[in-house]
Design a protein around this nucleic acid. Structure first.
Length: 424
RNA sequence: GGAUGGGUGGCCGAGUGGACUAAGGCGACGGUCUUGAAAACCGUUGUGUGGGAAACUGCACCGGGGGUUCGAAUCCCUCCCCAUCCGCCA
């Protein structure tokens, strides 16, 4: 969420930002309600002050008659207060509903545009595009030949969008996680495995909407829990409600979790194979920083993603995400799009965002500078290290050989125990 | 899943309806003393949000939400969490 005062004082900027992001919000209504809320709040507080004074005087009243008279006065005062407070609660609820739909501001350098077509390519990775002197297969055909993925059984057991990894794909999944962890641990990240479920209020704090017509989130019936769509939710939620000493920042975490997504409304677009699935494993980076350090942390996370995919020998490009494609919480977002020869186009494999204080305000994570009074909201960032299913697509398709085998990237060979995935 | 006990400030911990304006301790910070330090002694002490140039001051906050009452840390309801024991279990 944005700071309420900021919205009121910068209504035009906020409106322009909503427009840039293609989000329809009634900012004027928010400003109007906020001014009403303040007035009403002051009135309620004044009534409380009177009631407090009166209550205290009753204990000290000299006789029974005086006490009863004051009690009666207190009763009337309370009725009035309750009435005003009900009004205030009603107002606050409407205000909050609008507040939650107002997206984060965007970095001034984020490209303007309605959707991913306006994303700006910044640079390409170290690995050049592969040149095949044969017609490359897509990962579905490769996986079938190499007996790596069982889509049919996945559909039988859990439905379309689920799959079993088999044989070397299982080793590849583990090796990818291990590879990512080793890089991140060496960079000072604390490795975690996180819950795959989280409370709905934590989901909401991270900017996800657990229930609703177009939700990406699976919720668990008869509970306040949902399956997480990313470890960003649990890693961010770890510090919800806490105040961190400034000297302990930045905090860099990396978490392994399963990710679950309903992919509601996504049918028909890039649904073949492993690209858009309901469950996958992911190593996620998460950072809590001082406000002045979040922009450089975002570049750090992006550089790590580049390092990981350069290491895998996968060609990719880095794009600066356009305002209309940022989602609610992000101030700026970079995606790595790997070259996917089977689709003959780039496909998103990682995404890293600086959410500034937007998530922190919702999750109520603050920091305190020693010796200074008060606290402030810190900044949160997240980034994909490796989303296993999509990384597997990129590896299989880019490293395929004329005979249908796949050469294992050097960084994974020791962990895989082999240099090549051959037909079984 | 069942039983019991708990959740109070940075930490420990007292507090069963009106002096809680939350005791006391620890820690931290400042001071006195000292060449310096320790000890001792003295003082200070949270968060949020309003008002005010400031001094200062209002309101809210004792796990969350709701209720009773003129008044709730305290009583009631509900949810969450923690501990211990039992059951089940990888």
């Amino acid at each position: 969420m944005l700071d309420r005062k900021f919205i009121v004082e910068n209504a035009e900027l906020v409106k322009q930002n909503c427009k840039n992001r293609g989000i329809d919000v009634n900012v004027d209504r928010f400003v109007e309600l906020e001014s009403q809320r303040k007035t009403l709040q002051t009135e309620v507080e004044e009534l409380n002050r009177e009631a407090n004074l009166l209550s205290k005087s009753i204990g000290k009243a000299k006789d029974e008659a005086e006490r009863n008279a004051r009690k009666e006065k207190g009763r009337r005062l309370r009725e009035k207060t309750n009435q005003e407070r009900a009004e205030l609660d009603c107002l606050a609820a409407e205000l909050d509903a609008i507040h939650r739909t107002i997206p984060n501001m965007a970095h001034p350098d984020a490209p303007l545009g309605a959707d991913d077509k306006s994303n700006l390519e910044l640079f390409k990775g170290k690995t050049p595009l592969p040149e095949f002197d044969f017609k490359p297969l897509d990962h579905v055909d490769l996986a079938e030949r190499l007996d790596l993925v069982d889509f049919q059984s996945g559909a039988q057991v859990a439905g379309h969008g689920f799959y079993f990894l088999k044989n070397d794909a299982v080793l590849l999944e583990l090796a990818l996680q291990r590879y990512a962890l080793e890089v991140l641990i060496s960079e000072g990240f604390t490795p975690m495995t996180t819950p795959d479920l989280a409370r709905n209020d934590i989901l909401e704090g991270a900017g996800y909407i657990p229930r609703g017509p177009e939700t990406q989130i699976y919720s668990i019936a008869d509970t306040e829990l949902s399956l997480i769509a990313t470890a960003e939710i649990t890693l961010g939620g770890m510090l919800a409600g806490r105040t961190i000493d400034a000297e302990d920042l930045p905090i860099k975490l990396c978490g392994i979790s399963h990710c679950f997504r309903t992919e509601a409304g996504a049918h028909g677009r890039a649904t073949r194979g492993l690209f858009r699935v309901h469950q996958f494993t992911k190593v996620e980076m998460f950072a809590f920083t001082l406000p002045e350090e979040s922009d450089s942390m975002l570049e750090h996370l992006r550089d790590l993603e580049c390092r990981l995919f350069d290491g895998l020998g996968v060609p990719y490009r880095v794009v600066d995400t356009a305002t209309g494609d940022l989602g609610g919480p992000a101030w700026r977002k970079f995606d790595l799009e790997a070259w996917m020869p089977g689709r003959d186009e780039y496909g998103e494999v990682t995404s890293t965002s600086n959410c500034t204080d937007y998530q922190a305000r919702r999750l109520n994570v603050r920091y305190k500078i020693k010796g200074e009074k008060g606290t402030r909201f810190l900044h949160t960032l997240n980034g994909t290290a490796v989303a296993v299913s999509r990384a597997i697509i990129a590896i299989l398709e880019n490293h395929q050989q004329p005979d249908g085998s796949v050469v294992v990237p050097e960084v994974l060979r020791e962990m895989m125990g082999k240099e090549r995935i051959d037909c079984v």
